[in-house]
């Protein structure tokens, strides 16, 4: 699995309240949520994001509320992967469960600039900054989590389990 896109960069402690404000939580429709993604942090996001783009951020990305609407909004807006120094744990779980690829890599998160073109090879956990020519290595997922990602999230995983009895 690979991803290729331009980087959209944010800072530390991006919380789920700014990713998708509570005033839009009276719906669970992904397209509707995507239309307001990042609104309270960056009003230009929705206009400039293109399919395949890669979100890059600092520490504690996705902190706060457990709303799965946050990774759903990001995924539905076309983002193919999030790279951060660290993720808040519920967000980390939710992203895996809905099949939104995320990578922890401090160096890449610090050095990639807004607008850089980035290529990711998920199987090897490598991040390549096409603009600067620099590569980075992130921790690959543990086996169990990789299995969930391979079937596009937890629903696929549980379905397979039920099928296998």
């Amino acid at each position: 699995m690979k991803a290729y896109g331009k980087a959209i960069k944010y800072g530390d402690n991006v919380d789920t309240d700014v990713i998708i404000p509570a005033r839009y939580l009276n719906t669970s429709d992904p397209a509707e949520l995507a239309a307001h993604c990042m609104e309270d942090l960056d009003k230009t996001f929705v206009k400039r994001v293109q399919k395949g783009d890669i979100m890059v951020a600092g520490r504690n990305f996705g902190s706060g509320s457990s709303r799965e609407h946050a990774p759903i909004a990001i995924k539905a807006s076309g983002i193919s992967c999030i790279i951060a120094e660290t993720f808040a744990r519920i967000f980390y779980r939710n992203a895996i469960n809905i099949g939104l690829p995320i990578l922890e890599c401090t160096e890449a998160a610090k050095e990639i600039s807004d607008g850089d073109e980035v290529e990711i090879d998920f199987n090897r956990g490598t991040i390549y900054n096409v603009t600067t020519g620099k590569s980075y290595q992130s921790e690959p997922f543990p086996d169990f989590i990789q299995k969930i990602m391979n079937v596009d999230g937890l629903v696929g995983y549980i379905k397979n389990q039920i099928r296998e009895g």
């Binding site: 706060g64 509320s65 457990s66 709303r67 799965e68 990774p71 519920i90 779980r93 939710n94 469960n97 809905i98 999230g153 937890l154 629903v155 549980i158």
Partner: peptide, 25 residues
Amino acid sequence: ADSHTCTYGALGAFSTGVGSTDMAA
């Protein structure tokens, strides 16, 4: 499926917040 589920730790229970897909599973 609410981040403040950790409240019940006050009772000496393990409780933690998760997302909706975790709740479904």
